[in-house]
Design a protein around this nucleic acid. Structure first.
Length: 199
DNA sequence: CCCTGATTCGC
DNA sequence: GCGAATCAGG
């Protein structure tokens, strides 16, 4: 692969967008993160300042790092892969026997548009904190595509699969979980209380 | 261990 | 110019 104008442009865009070299490399394909970094330096845009060096990429993302107050609000966290009730509240059991099929849990079937989430038993017993954390995390998400997911990236889907505005969290997963810490919080719910169903 | 960017230097 | 190897750090 060579650095065509298009590829360089994408590189610039992503770099100025705050994407990491490895992410850019994955996006471009055919190059390693080293190649990307090397190119970045040769292009003289190693310094990600938006001060002035930015001559060709005016895609400034207004989100330096203020102190947003994401309230628990959350009325519809779009996705809910598998709110596994989790019977032990302890991550001892491996829900996914498959080691080869890297396919996310949401593989099943695409819910016929119209009925987002059929099974929603006693669902939302998730702590408001967890939800707040999720919405907060989604701002820092890597926004990976299905193909970019690895065994160490959070596979929590965000957005509507039917639209372009769909991606996977992509942040580092927790332990051997399929999700990052924040998403594990909502995916694996501990038994609310032992009273629920005195089984 | 996973990841980040920075540098070097043979090609 | 390119990027693998390496370095330095989180």
């Amino acid at each position: 692969m060579s650095w065509t104008d298009e590829r360089v442009e994408l590189l610039r865009k992503m770099w100025n967008d705050g994407q990491s070299a490895s992410q850019i490399a994955k996006e471009l394909g055919g190059v390693t993160r080293n190649a990307v970094i090397g190119k970045v330096h040769r292009l003289g845009l190693s310094n990600r300042t938006g001060a002035e060096a930015v001559a060709a990429a005016e895609v400034e993302q207004p989100a330096p790092k203020p102190e947003p107050k994401p309230r628990p609000a959350a009325a519809q966290p779009a996705p809910r892969p598998e709110p596994e009730p989790d019977m032990t509240a302890e991550p001892d059991n491996e829900p996914a026997p498959e080691t080869k099929s890297t396919q996310p849990a949401l593989r099943g079937k695409i819910v016929p548009a119209g009925q987002p989430l059929p099974p929603q038993p006693s669902a939302n017993e998730i702590s408001p904190e967890a939800l707040a954390k999720v919405s907060e995390v989604e701002k820092k998400a890597k926004r990976l595509t299905l193909m970019e997911l690895t065994e160490r990236t959070c596979k929590w889907p965000v957005g509507d699969p039917a639209t372009e505005d769909f991606w996977f969290c992509g942040l580092p997963v927790k332990q051997g979980k399929p999700y990052c810490e924040a998403h594990v919080g909502v995916a694996f719910q501990p038994m609310s209380s032992r009273r629920d169903r005195r089984r």
